[in-house]
């Protein structure tokens, strides 16, 4: 964020219904308020039907392409293990990765035709070493009383990568995008996520 000419590339991946879109909207609020140009692009036409959801999120002084170039991801924020490994090749060698520990079986696994890939965490660690963090978003959110807040737990963990952004800016973004009755839960979820990393 210190280099104004550089565009930062964040790739979010997950399964429809996990709240990846809300997470990318929170990022949008935060980085626009911080004075950056922002572009984000998502394919969500069939997400309601259990398909995968990906969001390309880019910020910098001036952003042209709405899509990140293959291999140019600075940060991968993934809400599901299989949807994390699917995009491993997109991440730069020095890229940073946060993965939610949830497994959601796709049809081929449900039908017993293919195995859910094992050792996803190990594969990531092999290539990205200490730059890989695993977060139990569902577990933490469940403890707070609502599993739906797992996405904001992940956002909280992710916020650690941007120490120059104050907590208050993240909280404001969360409050702007969520209904008032959800504020307390999600503010807690944000801080718990931050602690988890």
């Amino acid at each position: 964020m210190k280099d104004n000419g550089k565009v930062t590339n964040i790739f979010l991946s997950g399964v429809g219904g996990q709240g990846a879109i809300l997470a990318s909207n929170i990022l949008g609020e935060v980085f626009i308020k911080a004075g950056y140009d922002v572009k984000k692009s998502e394919v969500h036409g069939m997400a309601q039907r259990g398909g995968d959801v990906t969001t390309h999120f880019r910020f910098g002084k001036k952003v042209h392409s709405p899509l990140i170039k293959y291999g140019d991801v600075d940060y991968l924020l993934s809400f599901e293990l299989l949807e994390a490994i699917r995009y491993i090749n997109w991440v730069k060698p020095e890229g940073k990765i946060i993965i939610n520990k949830q497994e959601i079986f796709p049809p081929a696994v449900n039908l017993g035709q293919m195995a859910y890939p094992k050792d996803i965490e190990k594969t990531f660690k092999k290539y990205f070493k200490e730059n890989v963090s695993m977060v139990d978003g569902q577990g933490i959110a469940k403890r707070l009383g609502n599993v739906q807040a797992a996405n904001v737990v992940l956002v909280g963990a992710f916020s650690k990568f941007f120490p120059e952004v104050k907590d208050q800016q993240w909280i404001e973004a969360i409050k702007t995008l969520l209904a008032p009755k959800l504020h307390d839960l999600n503010v807690k979820a944000f801080y718990e996520g931050k602690k988890a990393l």
């Binding site: 039907r49 259990g50 796709p106 049809p107 293919m114 890939p117």
Partner: peptide, 10 residues
């Protein structure tokens, strides 16, 4: 090599 995640009827 990874299982795909096509959309499905709910």
């Amino acid at each position: 090599d990874l299982p795909r995640r096509p959309p499905n009827l709910c």
